[in-house]
Simulated scan of single mutants.
Amino acid sequence: MNSETATSALGVAFVVVGFAMLFVPGFASVFDANELFLSLIGLGFALQTVRVVNARRRTPYEQAETADPEIAQELPTPGDDFDDLMDQAAAVRYSGDQRDAVRERLHAAAVAVVVRTEGLSREQAVERVENGSWTDDPYAAAFFTGEISGTSVLQRVSLFDRSRSQFERWATHAAREIAELSEDER
């Protein structure tokens, strides 16, 4: 029997005797609780403590392996797909599909904003968007009506920007007006 086993057995014996004295008060009267007896019990607990500490010191240190954290997923900024569609519609001359998609998305957004801000039915909002009365911006209204009304000749001349097409200018005005109406609602 090695010293660790003997020390463990002695420690267990002392613990059992201690519990027996605690739960059976008559058993405690068998032992005289003098200084020598208490010193032996303390020595037993000290030996057990030393054994446990030494066993722990000899045990190799192992660190748990953690899984790699999730890699942050790159998400697009809201509206990036519309900006890309708008760039395609503006870049390609006569790009009917992209322009139709831009027009449909802006029309749906304008109708939704008019319904929310003015409390109209969907049919009434569609009518207001299509006749241009949904906004004070003549260029935003012209995007859906196809014609500018209520502007002076000087305003029309200042609109001649050779770097962008009429479609892009009017679509930009409409998108900006929809965004402003939506922000005013909040």
Rank of each mutant, 00 (worst) to 15 (best):
D68A: 15
P76C: 03
F45T: 01
I41K: 00
P60A: 09
L75S: 06
A67K: 12
P69F: 15
N54I: 08
G42I: 09
L40M: 06
D68R: 13
F37C: 02
V53F: 11
R58M: 03
Y61H: 11
E70G: 08
A64P: 06
L36G: 02
R58Q: 03
N54F: 10
V52C: 07
D68S: 14
P60W: 01
A64G: 06
A64M: 14
P69K: 10
I41T: 03
T66V: 12
Q73G: 11
D80Q: 09
R51V: 01
A72S: 08
N54E: 08
A64K: 13
L38H: 02
E62H: 13
F37G: 02
L47I: 12
T49A: 07
D68T: 12
P78A: 15
A67G: 10
E62S: 14
Q48C: 06
L38N: 00
Y61W: 07
L38C: 02
A46H: 01
V53P: 13
D68Q: 14
A55F: 02
R57P: 00
Q63K: 12
L75E: 05
V53Y: 12
A46P: 00
P69V: 14
E74G: 10
E74S: 09
N54H: 10
R58L: 04
L47P: 00
Q48R: 05
E62F: 15
R51D: 01
Q63W: 15
A64Y: 14
V53K: 05
S39E: 06
T66R: 15
V50R: 01
T66K: 13
G44Q: 00
N54R: 13
T66I: 13
D80C: 03
T59I: 07
E65K: 14
F37W: 06
T66C: 03
D80S: 11
V52I: 13
D80E: 09
D81V: 12
E74N: 09
R58G: 07
R57G: 02
L36V: 06
L38A: 03
L75V: 11
P76F: 10
L75N: 11
P69I: 09
P60C: 04
L75P: 00
L75F: 11
R51S: 04
T59F: 03
G42E: 09
A55L: 07
S39M: 14
P69E: 14
N54V: 06
G44E: 00
P76T: 05
A64F: 15
L47Y: 04
D80F: 04
T77R: 09
E65T: 15
G79M: 11
R56Y: 04
T77A: 02
D81L: 07
L40W: 04
R57A: 08
A72H: 14
A72V: 10
L47T: 03
G42H: 04
G79I: 07
Q73K: 15
R58H: 05
T77P: 05
